[in-house]
Design a binder for these strands. Structure first.
Length: 557
DNA sequence: ACACCATGGCCCC
DNA sequence: TGGGGCCCCTGGTG
């Protein structure tokens, strides 16, 4: 686009005709000349840059070359082989080589964000594989505090029991949303019921045991459903929070829904005023729905009256998005919030006002999620966009810095739902967490994005879940509260992972295990029919209700 | 096949 | 402090 202004200064060029790499910069099969991506060669690069231009496009160079040839001038020499699309310099290329992504060596490591190496050679990736490595453990408890802590949570086992990871799982696509999945929630009592929300505002209710029963509500929200919570005293009532600025309350039996809170009553008045709701949780003791908007404020909705309660309270930096709210499972008045101001904060709901946080947990970048541990509520797990999971082992200990940080690839770009590491609600030792991985790995020539099971007490990657048929990134994951089931939202698809057979369950050993879905079986179609795949799903779409919106099922790959 | 876009967060000037 | 440019794994639309 920019006009070429450097013709007069153009030097002698010899066009290397043998290289078809000018067109095939993104071709995959060529794997020669790996040395060119190594920064040692940068003298050459610099020379090229000096002679030509640092900003000219490859096409411009080609045009110029053609020009030169047409005019019959002497041939000049230039290497057109590699132009990096990231830094526009010559001599190396960023991009996929087969199923492996080659970083631009001029950029900091894509995984750990430190300069001097690339993702391929990142110590966090090389040492323990796949990017998961614990930071040094910091002792956060003084002896006395430790004693108190033990008294305060005597039910916690002191030694971590072995937990069980299915060695092989079946994966089933239970349904496609028409837009990307943004959140998932299992029913608190009915084992086979899963709720899913999408970018369009639709709310799906799936019975993955009997695929015949499912409903999609398309009229509750007008855009992203960011969070869903069941009313703890009434199983069929669901609260949902949306970027349309409303909290909705939906009766799953009648399909009727109401909006106890709407933060944009005047409609669209521009981006500076449009409020979006991301974080939401329920304080069951007080009967309150807590929700926070994209400008830093906390709101409360009384569940009995279904009306807003009190004034908004500034809980994060004014004007920044609050993305997560979690009530402590033991003491629901203790609140954990997180947001775009790079902080996770702990509050006491009984004395909450702007600036009254008990702790402010600093992160390097946006905090996608922050959760208390599911049983004792004394640990904290956060996911930050700096590609790190942070763990505080005890809220009674030193909160100045996390007990551990785990480097893990979950930096994302705007087109994805943010990754959130979530505790396994069934692990009594409160150490197992699940989170999708952004960066892909080369699995026999296919670039796949696994879902990682991480032991947060050691940083060890306990299992990774992949399916050769799932090539999309899986940022949304939810572990079943009672069964060995993982639900995944990946792009517009929903997946249910189940152990193949109970006898396949194996106990955790020291080494990392792969959890791989059987490919042949999947391609051939469903075998043992406990869960159907999408082809059989398709035939089942019923006209059961007008609320149900049919979306076309498309088989990718 | 290709271009554009959405409107997320960060970095740099 | 604010605007512009940038960016690795989307996916729809024209």
């Amino acid at each position: 686009m920019a006009p070429v202004t450097r013709r007069t200064a153009f030097p002698k060029v010899l066009i290397e005709r043998d290289s078809e790499s000018e067109q095939s910069s993104s071709e995959e099969e060529e794997d020669e000349e790996e040395e060119e991506i190594v920064p040692e060669e940068e003298e050459e690069d610099d020379n090229d840059d000096d002679k030509v231009t640092t900003t000219s496009e490859k096409t411009e160079i080609l045009e110029l070359c053609a020009d030169v040839i047409r005019k019959g001038k002497a041939l000049l020499t230039i290497s057109l082989k590699k132009v990096c699309k990231v830094c526009k310099k010559h001599g190396h290329e960023a991009g996929f080589k087969g199923a492996t992504y080659i970083d631009c060596p001029m950029k900091p490591c894509f995984l750990c964000k430190k300069p001097g190496h690339t993702t391929l050679t990142c110590p966090h990736r090389v040492s323990t594989e796949h990017g998961v490595v614990p930071a040094p453990r910091k002792k956060t408890c003084k002896p006395l505090e430790y004693v108190f802590e033990r008294q305060l949570r005597p039910s916690l086992p002191s030694i971590k029991p072995k937990y069980v990871i299915p060695d092989q799982v079946n994966c089933a696509v239970i349904r496609y949303h028409s837009r990307r999945v943004t959140c998932l929630e299992f029913h608190p009592t009915k084992n086979n019921i899963l709720l899913s929300g999408d970018k369009k505002g639709q709310l799906g209710v799936w019975d993955f045991g009997k695929v015949y029963e499912k409903v999609v509500y398309g009229n509750i929200h007008s855009c992203l459903v960011n969070n869903m919570r069941f009313n703890p005293s009434n199983d069929c009532m669901v609260y949902s929070a949306s970027s349309d600025g409303t909290i909705s309350c939906t009766d799953l039996e009648t399909g009727l829904s109401s909006s106890p809170m709407n933060l944009n009553p005047g409609g669209w008045l521009g981006r500076n005023t449009w409020k979006m709701i991301y974080g939401m949780d329920i304080n069951s003791e007080k009967g309150l729905v807590l929700a926070a908007d994209s400008f830093g404020f906390l709101y409360m909705v009384d569940m009995r009256s279904n009306h807003r309660n009190g004034d908004a309270i500034l809980i994060h930096k004014k004007g920044t998005k609050v993305v997560g709210i979690h009530c402590n499972p033991i003491q629901p008045d203790i609140l954990l919030t997180c947001g775009n101001d790079h902080f996770a904060r702990i509050w006491d709901l009984r004395y909450i006002e702007a600036g009254s946080s008990l702790y402010d947990l600093k992160h390097n970048r946006v905090v996608n999620s922050a959760y208390f541990s599911p049983f004792s509520g004394t640990k904290i797990l956060t996911t930050s966009q700096d590609n790190r999971l942070n763990i505080w082992d005890s809220i009674f200990g030193n909160m100045d810095s996390p007990s551990r940080e785990i480097v893990h690839s979950h930096d994302f770009n705007r087109h994805l739902t943010p990754f959130k590491a979530e505790w396994d609600p069934k692990d009594p030792s409160e150490s197992l967490a699940v989170i999708g991985r952004y960066i892909s790995e080369n699995y026999n020539g296919a670039a796949l994005h696994p879902i990682d099971f991480i032991d947060t007490s050691t940083g060890q990657l306990v299992a990774e879940v992949i399916d050769p048929n799932i090539t999309t990134i899986s940022p949304v994951n939810k572990l079943h509260p009672r069964e060995d089931i993982l639900a995944t939202g990946s792009s517009r698809s929903l997946f249910i992972w189940k152990p193949k057979e109970k006898s396949d369950l194996v106990e955790e050993k020291d080494e990392r295990k792969f959890v791989v879905c059987g490919k042949a079986e999947k391609k051939r179609g469903k075998k043992n029919g406990d869960i159907s795949d999408e082809s059989d799903d398709e035939g089942v779409i019923s006209s059961k209700s007008k609320k149900f919106k049919s979306t076309k099922t498309k088989n990718k790959h």
